[in-house]
Amino acid sequence: MITMQDVCKSYKVAKRNAGFGEACKALFRREYETIHALRNVSFTINDGEMVGYIGPNGAGKSSTIKILSGILTPDSGTVLVDGRVPYKDRIRHVAQIGVVFGQRSQLWWDVPVIDSFELLKDVYSIPQKQYDNNLEELTSLLNLSELLRTPARQLSLGQRMRCEIAGSLLHSPKILFLDEPTIGLDAVSKLAVRDFIKKQNELHGTTVILTTHDMQDIEALSKRIILIGKGEILLDGTPEDLKKGGQSIDETVAELYRAYDI
């Protein structure tokens, strides 16, 4: 179970102004502004849920994911994931979660994918038997058999994403964080990735939290949506809650963004 209670997080950012004079001025003095990435964010996610976490860029999505995956320490509030405080007990926590950052790769670029997997086996100290079983299952579900011997740099974006997802599940995590997993994928790969995530959830009861800009992802995958804007939770409900009278989900979200002025 994941609970976040009154979590706040703010950053200080240096201002940078354009222009010659401004650049000279900046040599001596720098101005800062405070950005509130999260304000009193609270929610609870139960085991086996699939939750879509949406909001415009800079709304606080990745701050939330970073806090839940133990990378970031919040300013205040309490966070508990299966009884652990992620940022206090990092190593024990991350052994139980899987994270996929859509725009970053955990695969070694120049060696066959299987070599990266072998390394992950040592990183997570996965017992041989569990590794073999998981690899076999992931290979057949994600259709990887052809790809495993190929260096990551030669894979298409869709193929690579399938491998990334497999890599993050080798150690049988209980919770999977997916940060924009379908970004830039072609239609076929998108469907394959969605299908797989669904199956993984049904088969192993993995809790899935995904951020995305693609509303079709949300429609296909999650029964629950959390909408965040300007660091605050604006809506927590089902996709049906979002759809008012037959509009497509894209239009509804756009309308919501406008309504909340984000």
Partner: peptide, 18 residues
Amino acid sequence: RSGSFDQVLTRPRGEILQ
């Protein structure tokens, strides 16, 4: 810069070793 240190932090191993 590339953000791969985030990935280091999501692995159950010491940062220095990684």
